[in-house]
Structures are given as C-alpha cells and as structure tokens.
Amino acid sequence: MRIPSGSTKVTFQVMHPPSQDDPVLRNSRREAWVILLIWCFATFACCGISGYLGFQPASKDGSIPPIPMIGGIPSWFVWGVFLPWGCCFVLTWWFAGLFMTEDDLGSDHAGELESDIREEATHG
C-alpha cells in the first residue's frame, strides 16, 4: 500500500468479535476436512485390504499356497491398490471438479513489501 508522504496512519478492518473468517479461510478449512477424509479413506482402504489379503502365510506343511491372480496381477494388489486408486480418482474429480470453490485470492502486495523493505532501511 502506498503511504502518502507525511502520513503515519493506515486503515484496515479488524472484525469484532474476531472470528468472522475471511471466505477463503472458511472455504479452505471446509475443503481441508474433506481432503482429510479422502486421505483417510485411501490410507486405510489400501493398508487394510492389502494387509488382509496380501500376506501369504505358509500352510501347516510349510508349503506356500498358490498366489491368487487377476489378469497376472496378485489379487490383493487389485483389491487393495487398484480399487482404492480408482475410487480416489473419482473422489478427487468430484472434489476438484464440483466441491472446491473458486475464491478471489486478492491483490498482490509484492511491490508494497519491496517498498516497505526500502523504507525500513531508509528510516531505520
């Protein structure tokens, strides 16, 4: 912000009570919770299904039972990785395509910060 020569005051808003969040903050927080749910789904679906199907214990006689395959891919991988991957693909498209809001991020104050750095050096 350009400060007129000689001026020592700037004007802005402080909200009272101080909890009226900026819309970008409000939307970002809501979206972050949804993303957390998607991450939890991916993590626990992959680890849970793969863990349940993927460990191949030896049978009582010590031999290894045949590994179930689907199209040349171990079945645990199909259900525990590819299936959640497909679900996440759909969820992500829903999230970014429909749920996520387009917010105005405001104007860029980079030039103002540059001026402030110089002003601070000049006036101590």
Partner: peptide, 25 residues
C-alpha cells in the same frame, strides 16, 4: 486481522502496518 479477516483490496500489507501505526476500523 489482516490475514484472517475479510479485508478490502486496498488494505495494507503487514509490513506496512509494522512501519506505520494502525488506524483500524
């Protein structure tokens, strides 16, 4: 407030605020 509350486009950057006493509305 500058970073968490709704602000008009001409609100100052925090660095400006540090250099000049604030006059908050």
């Amino acid at each position: 407030a500058l970073l968490f509350d709704p602000q008009p486009d001409n609100a100052p950057a925090p660095a400006t605020l540090a250099l000049h006493p604030a006059h908050a509305n």
